[in-house]
Simulated assay, not measured.
Amino acid sequence: MREMNAKEVENLLNEGKKLNIIDVREVDEVKTGKIPGAINMPLGLVEFRMHELDKTKEYIMVCRSGGRSGRACQFLKSYGFNVINMAGGMLAWEGKIE
Score class of each variant (00 low, 15 high):
residue 89 G to D: 07
residue 72 A to Y: 11
residue 79 Y to K: 15
residue 35 I to T: 10
residue 9 V to K: 04
residue 89 G to N: 09
residue 77 K to R: 15
residue 87 A to K: 14
residue 68 R to M: 08
residue 4 M to Q: 11
residue 46 V to L: 08
residue 4 M to W: 06
residue 94 E to V: 07
residue 27 V to M: 07
residue 66 G to A: 07
residue 88 G to N: 11
residue 43 L to A: 06
residue 23 D to M: 09
residue 83 V to Y: 13
residue 22 I to T: 04
residue 23 D to P: 06
residue 40 N to K: 04
residue 26 E to D: 15
residue 59 Y to E: 01
residue 82 N to E: 14
residue 26 E to M: 13
residue 51 H to P: 01
residue 80 G to V: 11
residue 63 C to P: 07
residue 20 N to V: 04
residue 84 I to H: 11
residue 14 N to W: 00
residue 95 G to P: 06
residue 81 F to N: 10
residue 44 G to R: 08
residue 4 M to E: 13
residue 51 H to I: 00
residue 30 V to D: 04
residue 1 M to W: 00
residue 51 H to Q: 13
residue 17 K to Y: 01
residue 84 I to W: 12
residue 60 I to P: 03
residue 23 D to E: 12
residue 89 G to C: 03
residue 62 V to G: 11
residue 87 A to N: 07
residue 58 E to C: 02
residue 9 V to M: 11
residue 59 Y to K: 05
residue 56 T to H: 12
residue 47 E to W: 00
residue 74 Q to P: 00
residue 49 R to G: 01
residue 16 G to V: 03
residue 22 I to E: 05
residue 92 A to C: 05
residue 98 E to M: 06
residue 43 L to C: 07
residue 65 S to Q: 02
residue 39 I to E: 09
residue 41 M to P: 04
residue 26 E to R: 12
residue 3 E to L: 06
residue 4 M to N: 08
residue 74 Q to V: 12
residue 28 D to I: 13
residue 97 I to D: 11
residue 59 Y to Q: 05
residue 49 R to S: 04
residue 7 K to F: 00
residue 68 R to E: 06
residue 59 Y to A: 02
residue 59 Y to H: 04
residue 43 L to M: 14
residue 86 M to H: 03
residue 66 G to L: 07
residue 90 M to R: 09
residue 21 I to C: 03
residue 23 D to A: 09
residue 76 L to K: 09
residue 83 V to Q: 12
residue 37 G to H: 02
residue 28 D to P: 09
residue 93 W to C: 08
residue 23 D to Q: 09
residue 45 L to K: 10
residue 66 G to W: 05
residue 6 A to D: 10
residue 88 G to P: 09
residue 32 T to M: 14
residue 95 G to W: 01
residue 55 K to H: 02
residue 97 I to E: 15
residue 17 K to F: 02
residue 27 V to I: 14
residue 66 G to I: 06
residue 26 E to C: 03
residue 7 K to R: 14
residue 23 D to T: 11
residue 80 G to I: 11
residue 76 L to C: 10
residue 14 N to F: 00
residue 28 D to A: 14
residue 68 R to A: 04
residue 44 G to L: 04
residue 45 L to Q: 14
residue 23 D to R: 04
residue 74 Q to F: 12
residue 38 A to T: 08
residue 31 K to D: 13
residue 84 I to M: 12
residue 29 E to W: 02
residue 27 V to F: 00
residue 30 V to R: 09
residue 47 E to L: 05
residue 98 E to W: 00
residue 94 E to T: 15
residue 20 N to D: 14
residue 71 R to Q: 15
residue 85 N to S: 11
residue 89 G to W: 00
residue 13 L to W: 01
